[in-house]
């Protein structure tokens, strides 16, 4: 089957910043993304878990975008402006998609 090159950008960020991030992503003309809940984890700022949170203040979410390779820089610039001062991880990897016209 024919596949096409694309980039998968994963941004794990504090839940309170989700709306700001997705607004910035949309402003960079990236209209397709998926937001996933994150159950728990650990990093430089210590461990945390979704269990027992009494507010969204300590929770995390993951925003995933699959985009055309030429759009990566614009997306990363927009994302970095939001996540710069915050806890989180931004990663980019290559992937293949079946329907290139959708990205």
């Amino acid at each position: 089957m024919q596949t096409h090159d694309a980039k998968r950008v994963e941004i794990t960020i504090e839940a309170v910043m989700q709306k700001r991030l997705t607004d910035a992503i949309e402003a960079a003309d990236v209209t397709g993304y998926t937001v996933l809940p994150v159950l728990g984890g650990s990093g430089r700022s210590g461990g945390w878990s979704r269990e027992g949170q009494i507010s969204r203040a300590s929770g995390m979410v993951q925003v995933i975008c699959i985009i055309r390779p030429e759009m990566v820089d614009a997306l990363l610039d927009a994302a970095f402006a939001v996540v710069d001062r915050h806890i989180g991880v931004v990663s980019v990897c290559d992937c293949q998609v079946l329907r290139a016209e959708r990205f």
Partner: peptide, 22 residues
């Protein structure tokens, strides 16, 4: 507070340590 203010602090003062104020 441990609901409204921590959320606001995470947005406005992300460098402040939640482990202390929470």
């Amino acid at each position: 507070s441990y609901i409204a203010v921590p959320a606001a602090m995470r947005v406005a003062l992300p460098e402040a340590k939640p482990s202390i104020y929470l």
